[in-house]
Design a protein around this nucleic acid. Structure first.
Ligand SMILES: [Mg+2]
Length: 397
DNA sequence: GTTCTCACG
DNA sequence: ACGTACGTGAGAACT
């Protein structure tokens, strides 16, 4: 069965939005924003368009005289990293950051989504695109429902507005660490396989290795840094990138990376071999044989070549995770139909599926979804799926 | 139409 | 000596 049939059903089903909650959020955001605007004008000593990076640059770097941190093509960056650093020296950047967060949430989600709720269905219908990404992931557009906020107070409140139909619940199921499990599978690394077979905490385990302490003595801060290292491995890590990400010295970052690869020689060998093979073949493959050409690897430009190496590392991992969740979607849809359930698949967010479930079907749907996702494919480590159920998307997480 | 920024995995 | 984390889509400002 082609995936497009599943995607068509999902698009037609749509997801219910609580418009009155969205209205309340819009008003609250409006009030908070006007208060912020006043404080910003006072701190800047003049009125200007806060949403204009060009005007903001003049205020920060010329009028106030704060130091520039990084360049863009056309001037000096005012992105979140820059404003966070400048916050240590002046009050204004902190207020700008808050303003950015709130205006993003208001314009992109709280005000935009209600405008495109379908009049016939009363629901929001996205398009899932199959032929956009380079890795085999889906994308979602008009509206994009794969980047709905989740972090922070406003993220939670927006997800509360994604609700279930009367007498229904939302069920969210997401793969736990699927990309690192795929890496464990491809690399056959002993340490990675061991921790996933024991269902251990991968970031705590990595922290224990990097900092040379027992797992029970890993601090929150050590675990946070190890999590960044684990992400770095999936993206094709470099000392420069890791040092920037963690805000630590280049040498310290290099030490973590060297330690990681010393403890995970399986990953080291896998990555080295894959890069050299790809230099010969010109492409990488996912677990179900999706291919991506990597011409960047043969570039005469060193930066482009390094980009090629990162793509060689990342694409089979990200692409295989995409293959796996797609197969699980097909299997779930077949069973829902065959077993005549009223549960409907609504959204896919890369490692998560969202369903609308008749209240009475809750337990059956949960076990069906968990079973199909965890058994979509047999890797040399288990796949693990977490499930949450609630009246809205925030509660289901 | 391009640039910058920022939301998500 | 060089300079970046991988994959997306959308809003606002500006040209
Ligand atoms: Mg997850």
């Amino acid at each position: 069965m082609p995936l497009i049939e599943v995607l068509a059903d999902m698009e037609m089903a749509g997801v219910k939005i609580d418009l009155s909650l969205m209205n309340i959020l819009s008003e609250e955001l409006g009030k908070e924003l006007s208060a912020l605007v006043k404080r910003i004008y006072f701190l800047a000593g003049e009125e200007f368009n806060i949403n204009s990076p060009k005007q903001l640059q003049e205020i920060l770097f010329q009028k106030i005289g704060l130091r520039t941190i990084k360049k863009t093509k056309t001037g000096f960056s005012t992105d979140v990293d820059v404003l966070e650093q400048l916050s240590l020296e002046h009050e204004l950047p902190k207020e700008i950051l808050e303003h950015r967060t709130l205006s993003k949430v208001k314009s992109t989600y709280v005000d935009a989504l209600p405008r495109i709720v379908n009049h016939k269905t009363g629901r929001l219908h996205t398009s899932f695109n199959q032929t956009i990404t380079a890795t085999g992931r889906l994308s979602s557009s008009e509206p994009n429902l794969q980047n709905i906020p989740i972090r922070g107070k406003w993220g939670q409140r927006i997800r509360q507005a994604f609700t279930a139909e009367k007498a229904h619940l939302l069920l969210s199921s997401d793969y736990s660490q699927i990309e690192l499990r795929v890496l464990a599978h491809f690399s056959r690394d002993k340490g990675l396989i061991e921790v996933f077979k024991k269902d251990g905490d991968i970031h705590t385990r990595t922290a224990s290795e990097l900092f040379g302490v027992a797992p029970e003595n890993v601090t929150t801060e050590m675990r946070r840094m190890a999590k960044t290292v684990n992400f770095g491995v999936i993206y094709g890590i470099s000392p420069f990138g890791l040092s920037r990400q963690l805000g630590i010295a280049h040498d310290e970052a290099k030490l973590y990376i060297d330690t990681y690869f010393a403890k995970h020689s399986g990953v080291r060998n896998y990555v080295d071999k894959l890069i050299s093979e790809t230099s010969e073949t010109g492409y990488v493959s996912t677990i179900f044989n999706r291919k991506r050409a990597i011409p960047e690897l043969l570039s005469t430009n060193r930066n482009t070549r390094h980009l090629g190496e990162r793509l060689v590392i990342n694409t089979p991992i990200q692409g295989s995770a995409a293959d796996i969740i797609k197969l699980s979607m097909l299997n779930i849809q077949k069973r829902l139909k065959k077993e005549k359930l009223g549960t409907r698949m609504l959204l896919q967010v890369h490692d998560e599926l969202l369903f609308e479930v008749p209240e009475k079907e809750k337990d059956r749907a949960e076990s069906l979804v968990k079973e199909e996702m965890e058994n979509a494919v047999e890797l040399n480590v288990p796949l693990k799926v977490d499930i949450g159920i609630g009246r809205n998307w925030a509660e289901a997480h």
